[in-house]
Amino acid sequence: MDEKDAYRQKIQARLDQWRAEIDKLQAKAVEAGADARVEYDKQIEKLRARQAEAQDRLDELDSSRGEAWKDLKSGIEKAWNELESAVKSAANRFS
């Protein structure tokens, strides 16, 4: 396994972890009252958009050739950090 593949697997595992956290929040939303549910749904929609953005960045990595993938790392890390922060914030807000 080369460095690019190892990096991709590491980031994909992180995205899968945050996807599971978002799914947990969505399950809580189902149990929430009407007012709380509206807020949950808004937050979950935002989290899913960030999740999709992070996945898109990771998918760009697959199409990169040679050492060009290293240029994409900063964008991937930024998307990952934004998703991580947003999920943690939402989880704290709704716990």
Rank of each mutant, 00 (worst) to 15 (best):
A6V: 13
Y7G: 06
Y7A: 07
R8V: 02
R8T: 05
R8N: 04
Q9K: 13
K10A: 14
K10G: 06
I11N: 03
I11V: 15
I11C: 05
I11Q: 08
Q12T: 08
A13H: 04
R14I: 03
R14P: 00
R14A: 15
L15S: 01
D16S: 11
D16T: 14
D16A: 11
Q17W: 05
Q17F: 05
Q17S: 12
Q17K: 15
R19I: 05
R19L: 12
R19E: 11
A20E: 08
E21W: 02
I22G: 03
I22S: 01
D23W: 01
K24W: 02
L25C: 04
L25M: 09
K28I: 01
K28A: 13
A29Y: 00
A29D: 00
V30E: 14
E31V: 05
E31F: 03
A32H: 01
A34R: 07
D35S: 12
A36Y: 05
V38G: 02
V38C: 01
V38H: 08
V38T: 12
E39D: 13
E39K: 14
Y40V: 10
Y40Q: 13
Y40S: 13
D41C: 01
K42S: 11
Q43P: 00
Q43E: 12
Q43T: 09
E45Y: 03
E45C: 00
K46R: 11
